[in-house]
Amino acid sequence: MLMPLYPLKTARLLLRPYTFDDFDAFHDIQSRDDVTRYLRSDNRDREEARQELTKLIGLEALREEGDKLVLAVELPATGTLIGDVGLFWTSREHRQGEIGYIFHPDHSGKGYATEAATEMLRLGFEVLGLHRIAGSIDARNDASARVLQRLGMRREAHFVQNEMIKGEWTDEVVYAMLNDEWRAREKA
């Protein structure tokens, strides 16, 4: 089980559970074409964003296989919500998980996604005891691929036209890291 004490602090960020106070910033992120372009979901209007935020509130612990931990990422100096990061417990038996992240484009290129996702890897490997954590992305999403590479994850697979997203066939690329690779990275 994984139930962190919140907020989690990294060098420049606070990671915490979502609240309804996050709605305006959450909607701003979720309503942008440049955010949802490579996601399965379309831009969300205010009602759709409210429904999605309601689903995310309370996803603050991993108690059993299938659970999702989704945390708001905030700049502590201003309290600005800049995105979110998630860890999904995909298999207890095989000790597997998956990370994901969504960030506002105004805050891209500053290493925030890498910093927040590193904390998710730490929680998955060091606290939950996972053996392998993956990250799956649309093959066209070069910025997300760079985040996964900076995390030290290795490219494992490229699935050609394996998903129909927003009316078009898309390729999926999978990156992953093993617990041994995480420990070696942390020692370096």
Rank of each mutant, 00 (worst) to 15 (best):
A139C: 03
A116C: 04
H131S: 07
R146H: 14
T78F: 06
G97Y: 11
L59K: 12
S91F: 03
G111V: 12
E65N: 08
E115G: 02
G100Q: 01
M164I: 10
N141D: 10
F125V: 14
G83R: 04
S108R: 09
S108G: 10
V70I: 14
H104N: 15
D138Y: 06
I102T: 15
G109C: 03
G66Q: 06
A157C: 09
R146C: 00
H94F: 12
T90S: 12
I165N: 02
T170L: 02
E98V: 04
L130P: 02
E64R: 15
D142H: 02
L123K: 05
R154L: 14
L81R: 09
G83Q: 10
P105M: 12
Q149Y: 06
I99C: 02
E98M: 14
T114F: 03
L87C: 05
S91W: 04
N162D: 11
S136Q: 12
V73I: 08
H131E: 15
I137C: 08
H131D: 09
A145L: 04
D138I: 11
A145E: 05
R150Q: 14
L81Y: 13
T118S: 09
E126K: 01
T170D: 01
N141R: 01
R122M: 12
D67W: 03
G100W: 00
T80G: 06
A134E: 14
E156C: 10
G109D: 00
G58R: 11
L128E: 03
T118M: 04
L121A: 10
T80N: 11
A77I: 02
I57G: 07
S136F: 02
A116P: 03
L151D: 04
I133M: 11
W169A: 13
T170I: 10
A139P: 00
A61Y: 09
T170K: 07
L128F: 09
Y112S: 09
A157V: 10
A77K: 13
V173D: 00
V160T: 11
G97S: 12
Q96D: 11
L53I: 09
D106N: 11
F103A: 12
E168M: 09
M120G: 05
A72V: 07
H131N: 15
E64Q: 15
Q51C: 02
R95D: 13
E98F: 00
V73C: 05
R150A: 09
S144W: 02
V160I: 14
R140C: 07
D171E: 03
A72G: 11
E52G: 00
G135E: 05
L75Y: 09
G135M: 04
T54S: 14
P76N: 13
L121W: 05
L128C: 06
L87N: 06
L69T: 13
H104E: 13
L62Y: 08
P105Y: 08
I133R: 08
